[in-house]
Design a protein around this nucleic acid. Structure first.
Lengths: 197, 197
DNA sequence: CCGAGTTGTTTCCACTGTCTACATTCTGCT
DNA sequence: AGCAGAATGTAGACAGTGGAAACAACTCGG
Protein backbone atom coordinates (compact mmCIF):
# COMPACT_ATOMS: atom_id res chain seq x y z
CA UNK A 1 0.00 0.00 0.00
CA UNK A 2 2.12 2.90 -1.19
CA UNK A 3 1.18 6.38 -0.12
CA UNK A 4 -0.12 7.74 -3.41
CA UNK A 5 0.05 6.12 -6.77
CA UNK A 6 -1.16 7.35 -10.09
CA UNK A 7 -2.51 3.90 -10.66
CA UNK A 8 -4.84 2.88 -7.91
CA UNK A 9 -3.87 -0.75 -7.96
CA UNK A 10 -7.21 -2.22 -7.03
CA UNK A 11 -9.65 0.29 -8.41
CA UNK A 12 -12.12 -2.31 -9.62
CA UNK A 13 -12.86 -3.64 -6.14
CA UNK A 14 -12.56 -0.16 -4.64
CA UNK A 15 -15.35 1.01 -6.96
CA UNK A 16 -17.49 -1.96 -6.02
CA UNK A 17 -17.07 -1.26 -2.34
CA UNK A 18 -17.69 2.46 -2.81
CA UNK A 19 -20.85 1.67 -4.74
CA UNK A 20 -22.18 -0.69 -2.10
CA UNK A 21 -21.35 1.85 0.61
CA UNK A 22 -23.28 4.58 -1.17
CA UNK A 23 -26.13 2.16 -1.76
CA UNK A 24 -26.37 1.48 1.95
CA UNK A 25 -26.01 5.11 2.96
CA UNK A 26 -28.10 6.95 0.41
CA UNK A 27 -30.05 4.24 -1.35
CA UNK A 28 -30.52 3.76 -5.05
CA UNK A 29 -31.08 7.40 -6.07
CA UNK A 30 -27.65 8.44 -4.80
CA UNK A 31 -25.86 5.76 -6.76
CA UNK A 32 -24.31 7.84 -9.54
CA UNK A 33 -21.18 7.07 -11.48
CA UNK A 34 -19.61 10.36 -10.43
CA UNK A 35 -20.41 9.83 -6.77
CA UNK A 36 -18.90 6.35 -6.79
CA UNK A 37 -15.78 7.55 -8.55
CA UNK A 38 -15.42 10.44 -6.11
CA UNK A 39 -15.81 8.11 -3.14
CA UNK A 40 -13.05 5.95 -4.56
CA UNK A 41 -10.90 9.07 -4.94
CA UNK A 42 -10.70 8.93 -8.68
CA UNK A 43 -11.93 10.95 -11.63
CA UNK A 44 -15.41 10.34 -12.98
CA UNK A 45 -14.19 8.78 -16.19
CA UNK A 46 -11.88 6.26 -14.57
CA UNK A 47 -14.53 3.53 -14.03
CA UNK A 48 -14.73 3.22 -17.81
CA UNK A 49 -11.48 1.29 -17.75
CA UNK A 50 -12.95 -1.42 -15.54
CA UNK A 51 -16.69 -1.46 -16.24
CA UNK A 52 -18.91 -0.91 -19.22
CA UNK A 53 -20.33 2.39 -18.09
CA UNK A 54 -22.74 2.84 -15.23
CA UNK A 55 -24.84 -0.16 -16.22
CA UNK A 56 -21.79 -2.38 -16.12
CA UNK A 57 -20.88 -1.13 -12.68
CA UNK A 58 -24.43 -1.63 -11.41
CA UNK A 59 -24.44 -5.13 -12.86
CA UNK A 60 -21.20 -5.91 -11.02
CA UNK A 61 -22.66 -4.57 -7.77
CA UNK A 62 -25.80 -6.65 -8.28
CA UNK A 63 -23.64 -9.72 -8.92
CA UNK A 64 -21.82 -9.13 -5.65
CA UNK A 65 -25.27 -8.78 -4.08
CA UNK A 66 -26.27 -12.22 -5.34
CA UNK A 67 -23.15 -13.74 -3.85
CA UNK A 68 -23.96 -12.27 -0.46
CA UNK A 69 -27.55 -13.32 -0.94
CA UNK A 70 -26.43 -16.88 -1.45
CA UNK A 71 -24.22 -16.67 1.64
CA UNK A 72 -27.18 -15.46 3.71
CA UNK A 73 -29.24 -18.43 2.60
CA UNK A 74 -26.48 -20.91 3.33
CA UNK A 75 -25.67 -19.46 6.71
CA UNK A 76 -26.69 -21.80 9.47
CA UNK A 77 -26.92 -24.80 7.20
CA UNK A 78 -24.55 -27.57 8.21
CA UNK A 79 -24.11 -31.03 6.73
CA UNK A 80 -26.04 -32.35 9.72
CA UNK A 81 -29.01 -30.08 9.12
CA UNK A 82 -32.26 -31.85 8.44
CA UNK A 83 -34.22 -30.92 5.32
CA UNK A 84 -36.78 -28.87 7.21
CA UNK A 85 -33.96 -27.05 8.96
CA UNK A 86 -32.31 -26.37 5.63
CA UNK A 87 -35.49 -25.03 4.14
CA UNK A 88 -36.21 -22.82 7.12
CA UNK A 89 -32.64 -21.52 7.20
CA UNK A 90 -32.65 -20.71 3.50
CA UNK A 91 -35.97 -18.90 3.63
CA UNK A 92 -35.03 -16.97 6.74
CA UNK A 93 -31.72 -16.07 5.12
CA UNK A 94 -33.52 -14.90 2.00
CA UNK A 95 -35.80 -12.60 3.97
CA UNK A 96 -33.06 -11.44 6.31
CA UNK A 97 -30.92 -10.42 3.36
CA UNK A 98 -33.78 -8.37 1.97
CA UNK A 99 -34.34 -6.68 5.31
CA UNK A 100 -30.70 -5.93 6.05
CA UNK A 101 -29.80 -4.85 2.53
CA UNK A 102 -32.97 -3.29 1.16
CA UNK A 103 -31.25 -1.07 -1.40
CA UNK A 104 -29.06 -3.88 -2.67
CA UNK A 105 -32.06 -6.18 -2.82
CA UNK A 106 -33.93 -3.53 -4.79
CA UNK A 107 -31.07 -3.12 -7.22
CA UNK A 108 -30.85 -6.87 -7.74
CA UNK A 109 -34.52 -7.45 -8.48
CA UNK A 110 -35.56 -4.16 -10.00
CA UNK A 111 -35.42 -3.02 -13.60
CA UNK A 112 -33.16 -0.09 -12.79
CA UNK A 113 -31.85 1.96 -15.65
CA UNK A 114 -32.72 -0.55 -18.29
CA UNK A 115 -31.97 -4.21 -18.19
CA UNK A 116 -28.64 -5.15 -16.71
CA UNK A 117 -27.01 -7.75 -18.88
CA UNK A 118 -23.81 -9.32 -17.70
CA UNK A 119 -22.68 -12.93 -17.77
CA UNK A 120 -21.20 -12.71 -14.29
CA UNK A 121 -24.48 -11.27 -12.99
CA UNK A 122 -26.64 -14.03 -14.45
CA UNK A 123 -24.20 -16.66 -13.19
CA UNK A 124 -24.30 -15.25 -9.68
CA UNK A 125 -28.10 -15.05 -9.79
CA UNK A 126 -28.28 -18.65 -10.96
CA UNK A 127 -26.06 -19.79 -8.13
CA UNK A 128 -28.17 -18.08 -5.51
CA UNK A 129 -31.29 -19.55 -7.08
CA UNK A 130 -29.66 -22.96 -7.03
CA UNK A 131 -29.62 -22.99 -3.22
CA UNK A 132 -33.41 -23.00 -3.05
CA UNK A 133 -33.59 -25.29 -6.05
CA UNK A 134 -31.37 -27.84 -4.37
CA UNK A 135 -33.56 -27.90 -1.30
CA UNK A 136 -36.76 -27.98 -3.34
CA UNK A 137 -35.62 -31.11 -5.15
CA UNK A 138 -36.05 -33.23 -2.04
CA UNK A 139 -39.43 -31.84 -1.13
CA UNK A 140 -42.67 -33.66 -1.73
CA UNK A 141 -45.49 -31.19 -1.90
CA UNK A 142 -48.98 -32.62 -1.83
CA UNK A 143 -50.36 -30.81 -4.87
CA UNK A 144 -47.23 -31.35 -6.93
CA UNK A 145 -47.25 -34.52 -8.98
CA UNK A 146 -46.41 -35.44 -12.53
CA UNK A 147 -43.29 -34.96 -14.59
CA UNK A 148 -42.66 -31.31 -13.70
CA UNK A 149 -43.47 -31.66 -10.02
CA UNK A 150 -39.97 -30.62 -8.99
CA UNK A 151 -40.09 -27.53 -11.15
CA UNK A 152 -43.45 -26.53 -9.76
CA UNK A 153 -42.35 -26.99 -6.18
CA UNK A 154 -39.25 -24.97 -6.87
CA UNK A 155 -41.29 -22.22 -8.52
CA UNK A 156 -43.72 -22.24 -5.66
CA UNK A 157 -40.94 -21.93 -3.15
CA UNK A 158 -39.11 -19.16 -4.96
CA UNK A 159 -42.26 -17.22 -5.73
CA UNK A 160 -43.41 -17.33 -2.16
CA UNK A 161 -40.19 -16.42 -0.47
CA UNK A 162 -39.39 -13.71 -2.96
CA UNK A 163 -42.83 -12.13 -2.76
CA UNK A 164 -42.63 -12.30 1.00
CA UNK A 165 -39.18 -10.75 1.06
CA UNK A 166 -40.29 -8.05 -1.30
CA UNK A 167 -43.25 -7.26 0.91
CA UNK A 168 -41.16 -7.38 4.05
CA UNK A 169 -38.14 -5.53 2.68
CA UNK A 170 -39.80 -2.22 2.02
CA UNK A 171 -41.42 -2.01 5.41
CA UNK A 172 -43.21 1.29 4.93
CA UNK A 173 -44.51 0.49 1.47
CA UNK A 174 -45.28 -3.05 2.54
CA UNK A 175 -47.27 -2.18 5.60
CA UNK A 176 -49.07 0.50 3.62
CA UNK A 177 -50.15 -2.19 1.20
CA UNK A 178 -51.08 -4.59 3.97
CA UNK A 179 -53.18 -2.10 5.81
CA UNK A 180 -50.62 -1.10 8.40
CA UNK A 181 -50.13 -4.56 9.88
CA UNK A 182 -46.61 -5.86 10.15
CA UNK A 183 -46.27 -9.18 8.32
CA UNK A 184 -45.77 -12.27 10.46
CA UNK A 185 -42.62 -14.33 10.55
CA UNK A 186 -41.89 -16.21 7.37
CA UNK A 187 -41.72 -19.55 9.15
CA UNK A 188 -45.28 -19.22 10.39
CA UNK A 189 -46.61 -18.61 6.90
CA UNK A 190 -44.60 -21.27 5.17
CA UNK A 191 -46.67 -23.85 3.27
CA UNK A 192 -46.96 -27.37 4.55
CA UNK A 193 -44.34 -29.46 2.83
CA UNK A 194 -43.26 -32.97 3.55
CA UNK A 195 -39.83 -34.30 2.79
CA UNK A 196 -38.73 -37.27 0.78
CA UNK A 197 -35.79 -38.09 2.97
CA UNK B 1 -61.83 19.93 -28.99
CA UNK B 2 -60.88 23.33 -30.28
CA UNK B 3 -58.09 23.60 -32.78
CA UNK B 4 -55.41 25.19 -30.65
CA UNK B 5 -55.71 26.69 -27.29
CA UNK B 6 -53.07 28.21 -25.11
CA UNK B 7 -54.56 26.29 -22.25
CA UNK B 8 -54.70 22.62 -22.95
CA UNK B 9 -57.94 22.03 -21.13
CA UNK B 10 -57.24 18.52 -19.92
CA UNK B 11 -53.50 18.45 -19.57
CA UNK B 12 -53.48 16.41 -16.39
CA UNK B 13 -55.07 13.36 -18.01
CA UNK B 14 -53.20 13.97 -21.26
CA UNK B 15 -49.92 13.75 -19.33
CA UNK B 16 -51.02 10.55 -17.63
CA UNK B 17 -51.92 8.96 -20.95
CA UNK B 18 -48.70 10.16 -22.57
CA UNK B 19 -46.72 8.73 -19.69
CA UNK B 20 -48.39 5.34 -19.88
CA UNK B 21 -47.91 5.30 -23.66
CA UNK B 22 -44.20 5.98 -23.32
CA UNK B 23 -43.98 3.37 -20.59
CA UNK B 24 -45.47 0.75 -22.91
CA UNK B 25 -43.39 1.77 -25.91
CA UNK B 26 -39.99 2.45 -24.42
CA UNK B 27 -40.18 1.07 -20.92
CA UNK B 28 -39.10 2.71 -17.71
CA UNK B 29 -35.83 4.26 -18.90
CA UNK B 30 -37.62 6.37 -21.52
CA UNK B 31 -40.02 7.82 -19.01
CA UNK B 32 -38.62 11.32 -18.60
CA UNK B 33 -40.50 14.45 -17.66
CA UNK B 34 -39.47 16.16 -20.86
CA UNK B 35 -40.46 13.23 -23.04
CA UNK B 36 -43.91 13.04 -21.46
CA UNK B 37 -44.42 16.79 -21.81
CA UNK B 38 -43.30 16.70 -25.42
CA UNK B 39 -45.67 13.83 -26.18
CA UNK B 40 -48.50 15.86 -24.71
CA UNK B 41 -47.40 18.79 -26.88
CA UNK B 42 -46.40 21.03 -24.04
CA UNK B 43 -43.26 22.52 -22.58
CA UNK B 44 -41.26 20.54 -20.03
CA UNK B 45 -42.18 22.87 -17.17
CA UNK B 46 -45.93 22.66 -17.69
CA UNK B 47 -46.45 19.41 -15.71
CA UNK B 48 -45.39 21.33 -12.61
CA UNK B 49 -48.83 22.94 -12.54
CA UNK B 50 -50.54 19.57 -12.19
CA UNK B 51 -48.05 17.27 -10.50
CA UNK B 52 -45.36 17.62 -7.90
CA UNK B 53 -42.44 17.18 -10.23
CA UNK B 54 -41.49 13.95 -11.91
CA UNK B 55 -42.04 11.89 -8.77
CA UNK B 56 -45.58 13.18 -8.49
CA UNK B 57 -46.30 12.29 -12.09
CA UNK B 58 -44.81 8.82 -11.66
CA UNK B 59 -46.89 8.34 -8.53
CA UNK B 60 -50.04 9.29 -10.44
CA UNK B 61 -49.15 6.85 -13.21
CA UNK B 62 -48.52 4.11 -10.65
CA UNK B 63 -51.88 4.87 -9.03
CA UNK B 64 -53.60 4.46 -12.38
CA UNK B 65 -51.67 1.22 -12.72
CA UNK B 66 -53.09 -0.07 -9.45
CA UNK B 67 -56.62 0.71 -10.64
CA UNK B 68 -56.08 -1.31 -13.79
CA UNK B 69 -54.41 -3.99 -11.71
CA UNK B 70 -57.52 -4.24 -9.57
CA UNK B 71 -59.70 -4.41 -12.68
CA UNK B 72 -57.58 -7.27 -14.04
CA UNK B 73 -58.08 -9.23 -10.83
CA UNK B 74 -61.81 -8.63 -10.74
CA UNK B 75 -62.30 -9.50 -14.38
CA UNK B 76 -64.20 -12.74 -14.78
CA UNK B 77 -65.48 -12.71 -11.23
CA UNK B 78 -69.27 -12.68 -11.07
CA UNK B 79 -71.55 -12.81 -8.02
CA UNK B 80 -72.21 -16.44 -8.91
CA UNK B 81 -68.53 -17.38 -8.92
CA UNK B 82 -67.50 -19.96 -6.38
CA UNK B 83 -64.66 -19.16 -4.00
CA UNK B 84 -62.16 -21.33 -5.84
CA UNK B 85 -63.19 -19.65 -9.09
CA UNK B 86 -62.73 -16.24 -7.51
CA UNK B 87 -59.30 -17.12 -6.20
CA UNK B 88 -58.18 -18.57 -9.52
CA UNK B 89 -59.54 -15.56 -11.43
CA UNK B 90 -57.84 -13.07 -9.14
CA UNK B 91 -54.50 -14.83 -9.28
CA UNK B 92 -54.64 -15.26 -13.02
CA UNK B 93 -55.60 -11.60 -13.34
CA UNK B 94 -52.68 -10.61 -11.15
CA UNK B 95 -50.22 -12.53 -13.30
CA UNK B 96 -51.83 -11.50 -16.57
CA UNK B 97 -51.53 -7.85 -15.60
CA UNK B 98 -47.84 -8.29 -14.89
CA UNK B 99 -47.31 -10.02 -18.21
CA UNK B 100 -49.29 -7.58 -20.33
CA UNK B 101 -48.00 -4.45 -18.60
CA UNK B 102 -44.47 -5.31 -17.51
CA UNK B 103 -43.21 -1.74 -17.43
CA UNK B 104 -46.20 -0.48 -15.48
CA UNK B 105 -45.90 -3.42 -13.12
CA UNK B 106 -42.23 -2.60 -12.63
CA UNK B 107 -43.01 1.04 -11.91
CA UNK B 108 -45.66 0.08 -9.39
CA UNK B 109 -43.55 -2.31 -7.36
CA UNK B 110 -40.07 -0.93 -7.83
CA UNK B 111 -38.23 1.69 -5.84
CA UNK B 112 -37.88 3.94 -8.85
CA UNK B 113 -36.34 7.33 -8.28
CA UNK B 114 -36.75 7.24 -4.55
CA UNK B 115 -39.89 6.35 -2.74
CA UNK B 116 -43.07 7.57 -4.32
CA UNK B 117 -45.31 9.06 -1.68
CA UNK B 118 -48.82 10.06 -2.66
CA UNK B 119 -52.11 9.54 -0.80
CA UNK B 120 -53.93 8.64 -4.01
CA UNK B 121 -51.22 6.07 -4.81
CA UNK B 122 -51.38 4.35 -1.44
CA UNK B 123 -55.19 4.35 -1.58
CA UNK B 124 -55.20 2.74 -5.02
CA UNK B 125 -52.63 0.18 -3.89
CA UNK B 126 -54.71 -0.65 -0.85
CA UNK B 127 -57.81 -1.15 -2.97
CA UNK B 128 -56.05 -3.56 -5.31
CA UNK B 129 -54.66 -5.43 -2.31
CA UNK B 130 -58.15 -5.58 -0.84
CA UNK B 131 -59.33 -7.80 -3.69
CA UNK B 132 -57.00 -10.62 -2.65
CA UNK B 133 -57.61 -9.86 0.99
CA UNK B 134 -61.35 -10.22 0.57
CA UNK B 135 -60.94 -13.63 -1.03
CA UNK B 136 -58.35 -14.74 1.50
CA UNK B 137 -60.74 -14.06 4.36
CA UNK B 138 -62.90 -17.01 3.41
CA UNK B 139 -60.06 -19.43 2.96
CA UNK B 140 -59.09 -22.08 5.44
CA UNK B 141 -55.52 -23.05 5.01
CA UNK B 142 -54.33 -26.09 6.90
CA UNK B 143 -51.27 -24.58 8.53
CA UNK B 144 -53.05 -21.35 9.41
CA UNK B 145 -54.68 -21.34 12.80
CA UNK B 146 -54.81 -19.02 15.75
CA UNK B 147 -55.78 -15.40 16.04
CA UNK B 148 -53.86 -14.09 13.05
CA UNK B 149 -54.71 -16.97 10.74
CA UNK B 150 -56.50 -14.68 8.29
CA UNK B 151 -53.55 -12.32 8.11
CA UNK B 152 -51.13 -15.15 7.53
CA UNK B 153 -53.24 -16.66 4.80
CA UNK B 154 -53.56 -13.29 3.17
CA UNK B 155 -49.81 -12.70 3.40
CA UNK B 156 -49.15 -16.15 2.03
CA UNK B 157 -51.45 -15.54 -0.89
CA UNK B 158 -50.10 -12.11 -1.73
CA UNK B 159 -46.48 -13.17 -1.32
CA UNK B 160 -46.92 -16.14 -3.57
CA UNK B 161 -48.82 -14.49 -6.38
CA UNK B 162 -46.62 -11.42 -6.34
CA UNK B 163 -43.41 -13.40 -6.38
CA UNK B 164 -44.79 -15.53 -9.15
CA UNK B 165 -45.88 -12.51 -11.16
CA UNK B 166 -42.51 -10.89 -10.64
CA UNK B 167 -40.76 -14.01 -11.85
CA UNK B 168 -43.10 -14.43 -14.77
CA UNK B 169 -43.27 -10.77 -15.77
CA UNK B 170 -39.65 -10.34 -16.72
CA UNK B 171 -39.50 -13.41 -18.89
CA UNK B 172 -35.86 -13.15 -19.88
CA UNK B 173 -34.59 -12.33 -16.40
CA UNK B 174 -36.99 -14.84 -14.91
CA UNK B 175 -36.04 -17.74 -17.10
CA UNK B 176 -32.39 -16.86 -16.66
CA UNK B 177 -32.91 -17.20 -12.94
CA UNK B 178 -34.88 -20.42 -13.33
CA UNK B 179 -32.31 -22.04 -15.53
CA UNK B 180 -34.02 -21.34 -18.84
CA UNK B 181 -37.23 -23.18 -18.08
CA UNK B 182 -40.47 -21.31 -18.60
CA UNK B 183 -42.49 -21.24 -15.39
CA UNK B 184 -45.66 -23.32 -15.31
CA UNK B 185 -49.14 -21.90 -15.09
CA UNK B 186 -49.94 -20.23 -11.79
CA UNK B 187 -52.99 -22.43 -11.23
CA UNK B 188 -50.88 -25.58 -11.28
CA UNK B 189 -48.51 -24.23 -8.64
CA UNK B 190 -51.12 -22.79 -6.35
CA UNK B 191 -51.04 -24.16 -2.80
CA UNK B 192 -53.74 -26.49 -1.54
CA UNK B 193 -56.38 -24.40 0.10
CA UNK B 194 -59.78 -25.42 1.31
CA UNK B 195 -62.68 -23.06 1.56
CA UNK B 196 -64.91 -22.23 4.47
CA UNK B 197 -68.02 -21.74 2.37
C1' DC C 1 -64.03 45.73 -17.76
C1' DC C 2 -60.52 44.82 -15.00
C1' DG C 3 -57.63 42.72 -11.52
C1' DA C 4 -56.38 38.25 -9.63
C1' DG C 5 -55.54 33.54 -10.11
C1' DT C 6 -54.52 29.75 -13.22
C1' DT C 7 -51.86 27.70 -16.70
C1' DG C 8 -48.01 27.39 -20.01
C1' DT C 9 -43.41 29.27 -21.85
C1' DT C 10 -38.80 30.71 -21.59
C1' DT C 11 -34.51 30.80 -19.65
C1' DC C 12 -31.20 29.43 -16.60
C1' DC C 13 -28.84 26.24 -13.34
C1' DA C 14 -26.74 22.05 -11.32
C1' DC C 15 -26.16 17.55 -12.25
C1' DT C 16 -25.84 13.22 -14.92
C1' DG C 17 -23.38 9.62 -18.26
C1' DT C 18 -20.63 9.26 -22.24
C1' DC C 19 -17.10 10.50 -25.43
C1' DT C 20 -12.50 12.19 -27.01
C1' DA C 21 -7.91 13.81 -26.42
C1' DC C 22 -4.19 13.68 -23.43
C1' DA C 23 -0.99 12.39 -19.31
C1' DT C 24 1.07 9.00 -16.60
C1' DT C 25 2.50 4.51 -15.28
C1' DC C 26 3.36 -0.34 -16.04
C1' DT C 27 4.89 -4.44 -18.85
C1' DG C 28 7.30 -7.16 -21.94
C1' DC C 29 10.56 -7.60 -25.59
C1' DT C 30 15.07 -6.92 -27.50
C1' DA D 1 19.00 -1.14 -19.72
C1' DG D 2 15.94 0.94 -22.73
C1' DC D 3 12.11 1.62 -25.24
C1' DA D 4 7.57 0.77 -27.67
C1' DG D 5 2.93 -0.11 -26.58
C1' DA D 6 -0.64 -1.34 -23.57
C1' DA D 7 -3.03 -0.21 -19.46
C1' DT D 8 -4.80 3.13 -16.43
C1' DG D 9 -6.30 7.76 -14.90
C1' DT D 10 -7.30 12.89 -16.03
C1' DA D 11 -9.46 16.96 -18.11
C1' DG D 12 -12.79 18.91 -20.73
C1' DA D 13 -16.72 19.10 -23.81
C1' DC D 14 -21.30 17.58 -24.90
C1' DA D 15 -26.27 16.42 -24.87
C1' DG D 16 -29.49 15.15 -21.77
C1' DT D 17 -32.04 15.40 -17.24
C1' DG D 18 -35.18 17.71 -13.38
C1' DG D 19 -35.98 21.88 -11.03
C1' DA D 20 -36.64 26.99 -10.18
C1' DA D 21 -37.69 31.65 -11.39
C1' DA D 22 -39.42 35.30 -14.21
C1' DC D 23 -42.60 36.21 -17.60
C1' DA D 24 -46.75 35.74 -20.90
C1' DA D 25 -51.40 34.31 -22.09
C1' DC D 26 -55.72 32.96 -20.85
C1' DT D 27 -59.99 32.55 -17.58
C1' DC D 28 -63.14 34.13 -14.47
C1' DG D 29 -65.54 36.54 -10.62
C1' DG D 30 -66.32 41.24 -8.83
Amino acid sequence: MKARKYHHGDLKNALLRAGIDILEEEGLPGLSLRAIAAKAGVSHAAPRNHFDGLNGLLAAIAAEGYRRHKAYMQEGITPESSRPEQLAAAMHGYVRFARENPALFALMFSPVRGTLRDPDLTAAARESYAVLKGIAERIDWDKASGPDAALRTEMMLWSFVHGYAHLYASQEAGTARCGGIAPPDVATVIPGFSYID
